[in-house]
């Protein structure tokens, strides 16, 4: 009984004390009971965000952390024995010729994507604004490759590149270029280029859409003013369209680089990294190590390296983009 009374006084005292603090901080102002409302807000924020945070936290944040954790072990993924290795997997990786080949192929894919998909996408987008009749029809067809699943594209192009009956070889035959005929995907020298051409076919329409949206956003009166000054179409493109497209070009470049670094589907379906690892990418090599050879730890170290490379490149691009923005 006594303890209970004591507790009450204590609570009372504390309450009075806190009121005193409030009053001394804001003299002459009535103290408002702020706390309950704030708690209510926290509950509301929590209730609205918890489901998304839970799923995102589990599948993305936790998983990235676990990738690093697994990369420190030697582990088959099936057995219960995990042997701690420290950074040994990364040391092995740095000495792994196939990994370097795959990284090189990824960088080749990045360069090829930037040099083919973006310009082609831009040309297609500019063409949409030209006076060509029936542009709506052209646009509908131009965009179609992007909607097809990568697996379907991969299978379709396996037949297109086929060494016996593929249409590429048929066309070459009709042009009298029999010596150029070959099994495009079975040949170590041509396989990577055949795949790169397919990636370009798939993604150029995507950049067309991005550039088109950006060109629509350019105010018409800029062109009208240039026309009054007698600017040629070429000048209008170089001095109005291109400068205003730079933010879109930066965005497209980021998307293209990130996309090329994590590329997987098409190569997996078309060549599975072959022949003789000539089309191996980091992602296909990671898949092979993890799910074919059951080196979960080693596979994780490839995964995490991919993550770091993508992170560094993104930060790099964003840094230069900020600098460019600061200058202009």
């Amino acid at each position: 009984m006594a303890g209970h009374a004591k507790q009450l006084t204590y609570e009372d005292n504390r309450h009075q004390e806190s009121e005193k603090v409030y009053q001394s901080l804001e003299p002459g102002r009535k103290v408002k009971p702020k706390k309950p409302k704030r708690n209510g807000d926290v509950m509301v924020i929590f209730a609205f965000m918890a489901p998304a945070l839970l799923i995102y936290g589990l599948y993305v944040v936790y998983s990235i952390g676990m990738t690093f954790y697994y990369s420190l072990y030697e582990w088959s993924g099936i057995s219960n024995t995990m042997v701690f290795q420290g950074l040994q997997n990364y040391v092995t990786l740095m000495q792994d010729g196939i990994f370097w080949t795959s990284l090189q192929n990824n960088l080749l894919l990045v360069a090829a994507s930037l040099l083919t998909q973006l310009p082609l996408g831009l040309i297609m987008a500019l063409l949409l604004f030209s006076p060509v009749k029936g542009m709506r029809f052209f646009r509908s067809i131009y965009f179609m490759p992007f909607l097809m699943s990568t697996v379907a594209i991969g299978i379709l192009f396996i037949y297109i590149y086929d060494g016996n009956f593929g249409i590429i070889n048929q066309i070459l035959g009709q042009l009298g270029l029999e010596s150029w005929q070959r099994g495009w995907l079975g040949n170590e020298e041509t396989a990577i280029w055949a795949v790169i051409a397919t990636v370009c076919w798939q993604f150029a329409p995507f950049y067309m859409i991005l550039f088109r949206a950006a060109i629509v956003g350019i105010p018409e009166d800029l062109y009208e003013a240039a026309e009054i000054d007698g600017a040629s179409p070429r000048k209008k493109f170089l001095h109005i369209t291109l400068p205003l497209l730079i933010p879109t070009i930066v965005t497209s470049a980021i998307l293209s680089i990130i996309g090329s670094l994590k590329y997987f589907d098409l190569i997996f379906v078309m060549t599975d990294g072959g022949p003789n690892n000539s089309t191996e990418l980091m992602a296909t090599y990671m898949y092979e190590q993890t799910f074919t050879n059951f080196n979960m730890g080693y596979g994780s170290s490839i995964s995490f390296t991919m993550f770091l490379i993508a992170l560094i490149i993104t930060v790099f691009i964003l840094f230069f983009d900020q600098k460019r923005k600061g200058e202009s």
């Binding site: 599948y59 993305v60 990738t67 992602a283 990671m286 994780s300 995964s303 991919m306 993508a310 993104t314």
Partner: peptide, 12 residues
């Protein structure tokens, strides 16, 4: 999350 290569999370 938009910049992350999804393969980083594949094994976990």
């Amino acid at each position: 999350g938009m910049m992350i290569p999804i393969h980083t999370t594949l094994i976990p």
